[in-house]
Design a protein around this nucleic acid. Sequence first.
DNA 1: TTGATATTAGAGTATTTACTCTAAGTTTGT
DNA 2: ACAAACTTAGAGTAAATACTCTAATATCAA
Lengths: 206, 206
Amino acid sequence: MKRTESTRQRILDSALQLFNASGTASVSTNHVAAEAGLSVGNLYYHYKSKQQIIRALFDQNEAEVLSALAPPSDRPLNIDDLELMMKANFQILWKYRFLYRELVALLIEDPELATSFRDLRHRGFSNFERLLQFFAASGVLRPIEDPEELSRLTHLCWLISEFYISYVESGLGLLQTVEGEGWQEKGLALLRHVIEPYLPPDPESP
Amino acid sequence: MKRTESTRQRILDSALQLFNASGTASVSTNHVAAEAGLSVGNLYYHYKSKQQIIRALFDQNEAEVLSALAPPSDRPLNIDDLELMMKANFQILWKYRFLYRELVALLIEDPELATSFRDLRHRGFSNFERLLQFFAASGVLRPIEDPEELSRLTHLCWLISEFYISYVESGLGLLQTVEGEGWQEKGLALLRHVIEPYLPPDPESP
DNA sequence: TTGATATTAGAGTATTTACTCTAAGTTTGT
DNA sequence: ACAAACTTAGAGTAAATACTCTAATATCAA
């Protein structure tokens, strides 16, 4: 059972690496098997189609996102937690960047995946909206009365989080190779920029 | 020469339609030829590869974007122009949505296209940044002293413009079929939301 | 008209791709 | 020990894909 787990994971790791490097379209199952150093038959024993591999990577991504964004149960959230969550989120986005980069295309090609993904994300969105609402109600942010405004702010944060990596990869975010850390800091700066107008007025300030 | 133009265009139109509907990966040149109602040989007479078709669609998109975003030469820009530009831009983004949806993947698959696209967009970005700077300097927006802040605001607007369509298509932007007009209005609302903190203080207000 | 060039159709091909099958090892439970 | 279940390799295949070639027709310039 250990070997199984390890082979399955090796397939996913190789697929992830190749997908990130070259995109799902130009990476075949044969390539993945070769990269993982095992036979095609073996690969198909563990995953019965290329779709299944992609779905498995979606699942793996989902699990990592959920664990990274799980709120601490022992104390109330503060604004630094939010920043840490965003940071962890960026790491995961980068690890699975092919997935976000080709998101819509992948969902079009696999309608079943699409519905489950959309369902999951819809819940995530609601959670995040409630989180912001909570911040606004508890004084971490200034109050937001208009529900439309709250919704917009949430959409904005989500949009940035989900597509900032693609924005960077598409070339405007940063001009050099992207392996450095600057892109992360810049992404966080964008999110802060959006949140900033909602910080409570500082009583120390004149 | 007229016939040529029309066949060439028919190929592009069919390709665009199929790409938008199913993604570039699952649309073959044979499909495009069939959809356009002409032979494969004919298609390859006009475009010598699938890449060339994609590049032609990039070019066509570029031309439309440039013409939609050309500033009026006879009068100074005002804030309503900005809104009209955004609106026109959304229309074009929708028309060529496969292109933005698969942007990074397409650039990875065609490095030559990548460099020219990035070059073009870099210029576009600079122009837009100058436009915002001009607004800030001329009182349409409040002054923005920090160049970093101006840069961030520009990046933010650009990111939203470029990926909002994908955001909608990915399912969170709107839940129903996307053919309606609501998504456009919501996208504009996001952009306004980002710009709003930079509107000059209203002297009429208390 | 005539000859050159542009346009079209459609059969054909080399390669690739996703996937199957069979048979041989390897674990595991009892 | 031994059989059942799990895991692996690798040859093989049907279909699809991007693209070529040839030859027929249309257009145009002189």
